[in-house]
Design a protein around this nucleic acid. Structure first.
Lengths: 216, 216
DNA sequence: CCGGACGCTGAAGGCAGCCTGAAGCCACCT
DNA sequence: AGGTGGCTTCAGGCTGCCTTCAGCGTCCGG
C-alpha cells in the first residue's frame, strides 16, 4: 500500500517533468468520481485499489460512455489476468514491474493514437495557431518556441479563447489541482507569453483573470 | 458541533480565497430558507445539521423544483449511507474526513458541469449585452470597459432584468453575505454604471432597490 | 411648507493586484 | 565539472480600483 503510494508519486513526478499535468488519487471510488467529472486526456489505473478495484472503475467508465484512454497497471503474479483488463475496455496494459521509460512511452503512444483518431483540432485564435498534438505554436507562418509551462498556460487560454480564465483555474490545470504556490507564477508566464506573442493578444481582466483574443 | 463550525469557517475561507462568494449558516431550516430565497450556484450540505438534517433539506429543495447543484458531506461511520444522499437528489457526496483540495476539486467539477450543460447565456437587456463568460459588456456594437465590482453589480441586475433588486441583496451577492459596510457603496457603483451605460437604464425604486430596464 | 430620510456624486487616500527584471535552484547535456 | 535552460521565488514599482466621506439634491409624511 505504501509502496504503491510511493510508486504513484514517482510516476506523477516523472510525468510532470515530461510536461504533463497529473492528478493522483489512491482510492478507486474517488478516482472514478474525478474521472467522470473531469475531462482527462488519459488515465493510468492500477488494478489493486482500495474502495473499488481497477476493473470495476474501468468498466464503470465505459458503461457510462466515457472513452478516455486507459492504461492499466497489473501485477505480474496472476490472480488477475492481463486479458481481463483489455476486456473491460482498457486501451493498454503494463505488467509490474516495469521501467519508467516504458510507461512514459506507452503514455505518449496512447496520447498520440488518440490525438490522431480524434483529429486533434489545432486551436486557432486569429493568426495564432496552437497545435496541441505536436506541442507547437505558430504566429502566421512563423513558429514560436515555447517552454513546457508556457505552452500549457497558452493552451488553457486557447481552449477557452475569448473567455476570461481565472488565475486559480489556470493554476489548477497547468500545475496541479493541489498546487500551493504563489499565484504570481501565472503572471510570470503570462508576461513571458506576451513577450513572445505580442502583448495585445492576452488581455488582463483585473480581479478576474486573463483572456486570449484574436484582434487587438 | 463547535468542530463543525470551525470546519465550515475554514472551508468558507478557502473557497473565498479560490474566488468564490460564500455564505454560511449552521442550521438546516435556516439553510433551506436561504437556499429557496437566493439563486445560489452551488450548495455544500452537511448531513448532520441542527434544525433539519441534510437529507430533508435536500429533499425539500428538489421537491420544490429547485435544481441547484448540491454537494453533500457525509460522516464516514455509517448510520447514514452514501447512496441515500444521492437518492434524495444530491449531485455528489464526500465522505468525512476529506482533504480541502478534494472538496475544491469537486466544487469546481460541479460548477463546470453545470456551466457547460446550461451553456453561458449572454444576458441581453435591450441593446445592452452582458457576456458573463468573457466578462465583457456591449452597448450595441461598442464595448464598455467595466471594473470587477461594476461588472458584478451589473450582472446581478441583468440576471433579474426588469425586477427590482434590493440593495442588501446586491451587497450579499457582490460583496459577501457577512459584509458589514456602508450600503452607500452600492449607490456609488450604480452611479458609476449609469455614467458608463446611460442614466436611464437603471431605475431607482426608492426604499426598495434598483431595476435594470430595456427601454427608458 | 418644512423636516427628515433617502439617494446621488465628486474627491481623495490607501492599498490590492499586477508587471517585470533579476537571481537561485535544479535537471540535464556536453 | 562546467554550462545551459527552464522553473520558481522575490522585490520594487506602478496603475488604478475600492472604499469612505461630505455636501447637495430629491422625495415623502406631517
Amino acid at each position: 500500500m505504501e509502496d504503491e503510494k510511493r510508486l504513484a508519486a514517482s510516476l506523477a513526478g516523472g510525468l510532470r517533468a515530461e510536461g504533463y499535468a497529473v492528478d493522483v488519487v489512491h482510492d478507486g471510488r474517488e478516482g472514478l468520481h474525478l474521472a467522470t467529472e473531469t475531462a482527462y486526456d488519459l488515465l493510468v489505473l492500477d488494478i489493486m485499489l482500495p474502495g473499488m478495484n481497477g476493473y470495476r472503475v474501468c468498466a464503470a467508465l465505459r458503461a457510462a460512455g466515457n472513452d478516455v484512454p486507459i492504461l492499466m497497471l497489473t501485477a505480474k503474479d496472476g490472480e488477475y489476468d492481463e486479458a481481463e483488463g483489455l476486456d473491460t475496455g482498457a486501451d493498454d496494459y503494463l505488467t509490474k514491474p516495469f521501467s519508467y521509460v516504458v510507461l512514459v512511452a506507452r503514455v505518449r503512444a496512447l496520447l498520440r493514437r488518440r490525438g490522431r483518431s480524434a483529429a486533434a483540432p489545432a486551436l486557432s485564435v486569429g493568426d495564432l495557431r496552437v497545435d496541441t498534438a505536436a506541442r507547437r505554436v505558430f504566429l502566421g507562418d512563423d513558429e514560436v518556441a515555447l517552454t513546457a509551462k508556457e505552452f500549457a498556460v497558452l493552451e488553457q487560454l486557447a481552449r477557452r479563447a475569448g473567455e476570461v480564465v481565472g488565475k486559480p483555474e489556470i493554476m489548477a490545470h497547468v500545475w496541479d489541482f493541489a498546487y500551493e504556490g504563489d499565484p504570481n507564477i501565472v503572471e510570470v508566464y503570462v508576461s513571458a507569453l506576451r513577450r513572445k506573442l505580442g502583448a495585445h493578444r492576452i488581455q488582463t481582466a483585473r480581479g478576474a483573470g486573463y483572456r486570449l483574443v484574436a484582434t487587438p
